[in-house]
Amino acid sequence: MVDWRLFEPLFEFARKRSLWIVSFCTGCGGIEMPPLMTSRYDLERFGMMANPAPRMADLFLITGYVTPKTLKRIIITYELQPDPKYVMAHGSCPLNGGVYWDSYNAIKHLDKYIPVDVVIAGCMPRPEAVMDGINKIMEMIENGTADSWKRYKENYEWYKKNQDELFGEGWREREARRWIPWLMDKKEE
């Protein structure tokens, strides 16, 4: 095949300037997205675009606290994205639990389950802070330090172990099957 290393700077530039976001608002931080996308702050200046399909998205914004139920969806959606992909955690909750530090039902350390590139502290982080985070991730993409997708591949066993510890093994199947009786009941009605 063709050796593409010569073009790698161009690719990195394109990746940096064309971050498509997965529209997956997990928590209260989602409300910070509208001002970011609309005329006040206008993220589209940097080529960023909210994109509902994870298959063509690059940047996964975890906007706020994460519960186990959401985390399952986050992991599945994250794994659907093609490499290279980046994760930005948004607010204190995914970082260390934030105000839910003693909640029985919130994930305190998101980076135990999926790798995170940039974390923005604050509760809530203002749009300016988010934009600072985005600037940071762009810098990291350019100098090659935004390598969470590589880490996820390399340390997949470790992440898998943590996920399984939380949800129990074979959780995907179990989660899927859980809804089948409910769907069946609906059908009969």
Binding site: F7, L10, A14, R17, S18, S39, D42, E44, G47, P82
Partner: peptide, 29 residues
């Protein structure tokens, strides 16, 4: 569209960057 929304909007070459980025993805399904 961005100007109608009173935004600045991306640079005009943005779709080319998007395409380069998509074509340079390292894993495909």
């Amino acid at each position: 569209t961005a100007r109608i929304h009173r935004r600045v909007g991306p640079p005009i070459y943005q779709p080319i960057l998007d395409t380069i980025k998509l074509l340079s993805k390292k894993s495909n399904i």
